[in-house]
């Protein structure tokens, strides 16, 4: 059995598609797990998009904690005999999957970029060393627990006639001394850098938060723009909200055009933007590592370069 679970429904459907593909060589069925009430309509959606079976559990939970979710999945996986468990790589998925793997005494691979069966063993590839390498991980344990990022796979087309089994289970998780006190939305300006076609990004080369308007202006003359930034701008200085943050612990992006202004190019930032189409760097330090990963660069003071570049691009378009 291949088990799929995510607290994000879109990611659950994406993983069901991949699970279908892998269930062939493994000769196993695809089971999706949903936390909720027995009549949860999403269960039927999972079947129509490729699941053979849906287990609905945790009806009594109010906003499941990782501790409880891991217990419920542990009970399901242990009982059914499973070769692969796929968990959506949201933050709550990433904190739950290793806990589940620990309870199962098995291996786990987080943020898997590539997942396949070779010589009967599950293999997962993931980016390591801040984007300087890709580790090929081979599982010897059964099951293999893997977390899968969003948009790694396309969901299967909806098949209204597809039939599957929907089973409600009551599983009581352990009791833990932790509780959620409140949930607030992350301060956001509604920016979606992951879907952006063109990104102009700013880093520590800017002296004041007001100067970021230069980046916004350049972004404005490039049609289909979005403003991004490196870690210090969002996380430390808080000049921009975290939805702008590009890097290893921020968002990973692949626009057609990425312009890095005043960003030195720490490995953690590069790990978030290395898959971009054309990369442009503007930095006053000719030795800044950002130039090594750039297609085009200008060595110069961004306060002088940006106004000139905005004008030049205005004239081109």
């Amino acid at each position: 059995m291949v088990v799929v679970y995510s607290d994000n429904r879109k990611m659950a459907l994406e993983m069901v598609a991949k699970a279908r593909e892998l269930s062939g060589p493994l000769n196993e069925k695809v089971t999706a797990v949903v936390l909720g009430k027995a009549n949860e309509p999403f269960s039927a959606d999972l079947v129509k998009h490729g699941a053979d079976r849906v287990i609905v559990a945790g009806a009594s939970l109010e906003g499941a904690k990782a501790e409880e979710t891991a217990d419920i999945l542990h009970a399901i996986v242990k009982e059914e005999g499973t070769s692969l468990v796929m968990i959506g790589s949201t933050k709550s998925g990433k904190e739950m999957a290793p806990r589940l793997a620990a309870k199962l005494l098995v291996g786990c691979s987080t943020d898997s970029k590539k997942l396949y069966i070779q010589d009967g063993a599950v293999h997962s590839e993931r980016v390591v060393f801040s984007g300087n390498g890709v580790a090929v991980e081979r599982f010897s344990s059964k099951p293999a627990v893997v977390t899968v990022p969003a948009k790694a796979y396309d969901p299967l087309p909806r098949d209204e006639g597809r039939q599957g089994e929907i089973i409600a289970k009551e599983i009581a998780p352990g009791v833990y001394g932790s509780k959620v006190v409140k949930v607030d939305p992350m301060l956001s300006e509604g920016v979606n850098v992951e879907d952006a076609e063109k990104i102009v990004s700013c880093g520590r080369g800017f002296k004041n938060s007001a100067d970021i308007k230069l980046v916004e202006e350049l972004a404005g003359v490039l049609k289909g723009y979005t403003v991004g930034c490196s870690r210090p701008i969002a996380a430390d200085l808080k000049w921009l909200s975290e939805d702008h943050w590009i890097g290893l612990s921020g968002h990973k992006v692949k626009p057609k055009l990425y312009v890095a202004c005043g960003i030195s190019g720490q490995v953690q930032h590069i790990a978030g933007m290395r898959d971009s189409g054309i990369i442009v760097a503007i930095n006053k330090d000719a030795n800044a590592p950002i130039f090594k990963v750039a297609d085009y660069g200008i060595v110069g003071d961004l306060y002088q370069v940006l106004p000139k570049l905005i004008n030049a691009i205005k004239q081109k378009s």
């Binding site: 793997a101 390498g133 890709v134 580790a135 010897s140 293999a144 750039a294 297609d295 085009y296 660069g297």
Partner: peptide, 25 residues
């Protein structure tokens, strides 16, 4: 015993043009 083994660390293909303009602004 481990449940998983790293069997290879592959390189990441990254070829960039690296054209840097540094003369007259």
């Amino acid at each position: 015993r481990p449940g998983m083994e790293v069997v290879d660390i592959k390189g990441v293909a990254m070829s960039r043009k690296n054209v840097v303009f540094k003369d007259d602004m």
